[in-house]
Design a protein around this nucleic acid. Structure first.
Lengths: 201, 201
DNA sequence: GTCTATATTGCGATAGAC
DNA sequence: GTCTATCGCAATATAGAC
């Protein structure tokens, strides 16, 4: 099946922007890789920035759907919510392997799209997790005194860092674990760390 | 005290490269910001790449010193080693607030310096932590079955993510905690998660 | 819708005056 | 050691033919 220029551009741009960053990719390289005339980038997307924004928005579709699902059917408990959230994020990483790269690129060197696209979703996730941790402490499921900001950033950190570090760590270790196995173990450790325990050894 | 052009260029470059990334900073902008003639960048550093490499190497000096100290006086136990390591990293982040940005930028979009500078240090840290986790499991301090790769990446993730996420999270939460407070709590949670426990609740 | 050709801007680097 | 001036090149964007 032959794809039209528009689709091929989006696909190629996703790959190239993810691998090299927005500034390091020229529309010439993009067009060449996609086997498409470079003038079509302006024709379809109004320029390089427009194409990038389209790519970026596409990356967040699954996140948006996840947040909708949580709104429709709220989890039964905070611990349950964290587990479901982690499983969802893990699955999303499988389908959008470059999502973390796009987010981190934007966090570190924001493009004009950052405010409109990235911050919007990050802020929703932040609020979502924040509420869960608050409830978890209130209900006695999580350690008393747990800082909500801290817990949120910490969970985000361990759920995402693997996908950034993977390429470099593969240089000096076999790293046979998959992303799913990693996130499962990371979540386990994290929950182990924040759950309230009856003992005080 | 008036600084010479060379020093001012390094300082300005550190700031600009960290905030915008290598590709997004031009030598003209750099020279303008540093109040220095742009030709001096070639004169002193042999070009933009040379200046960047100088900046990058400077970022890792404290890491190198930390690793030397560990070689000279090894910690008494794996748990002790992790705690000391975390405290050191936390202190280094205080003195090199952009270190994480440089590392992550390189991890995601490697420049030619990456192989020579970044990978070298990352690989040393990786080996160091890997050995500690191995010893910790062998001595029964850490959970049996703990995956060393996983534990290493996980610890790196929680120790670093805060410093990347900070700028954006400050947009929608007060985030009054300092980096030191964050890393202390992150380490606590992490150790809590990996330490062997006598109970099995 | 897709192409060529080109306008315009900005880049990094350097030669040469001082 | 610092400056000006400029070279050569690659960038994005667009006008206009087909």
């Amino acid at each position: 099946m032959k794809k039209d220029a528009q689709t091929k551009l989006i696909e190629t741009a996703t790959l190239l922007f993810a691998q090299k960053g927005f500034n390091a990719v020229s529309i010439r390289e993009l067009a060449r890789t996609a086997n498409v005339n470079s003038a079509l980038i302006s024709y379809y997307f109004g320029g390089k920035d427009g194409l990038y924004q389209e790519v970026l928005e596409e990356q967040f579709i699954l996140i948006a759907q996840m947040l909708e699902r949580f709104e429709e059917s709220p989890p039964s408990s905070p611990t349950e919510a964290i587990i479901t959230y982690a499983n969802n994020i893990s699955a999303i990483h499988g389908q959008r392997p470059y999502l973390t790269r796009f987010i981190l690129s934007e966090l570190m060197n924001p493009t004009p799209c950052c405010e409109a696209v990235v911050k919007k979703y990050i802020s929703c996730i932040f609020d979502f997790l924040h509420t869960i941790f608050k409830e978890g402490v209130a209900k006695g499921e999580f350690k008393a005194g747990l800082d909500y900001d801290f817990a949120t950033i910490s969970l985000a950190g361990i759920m995402n860092f693997f996908f950034i570090a993977k390429p470099i760590f593969q240089g000096f270790t076999s790293l046979e674990k998959t992303g799913e196995e990693y996130t499962a173990q990371a979540l386990d450790t994290f929950l182990n760390g924040i759950l309230r325990r009856k003992d005080h050894e």
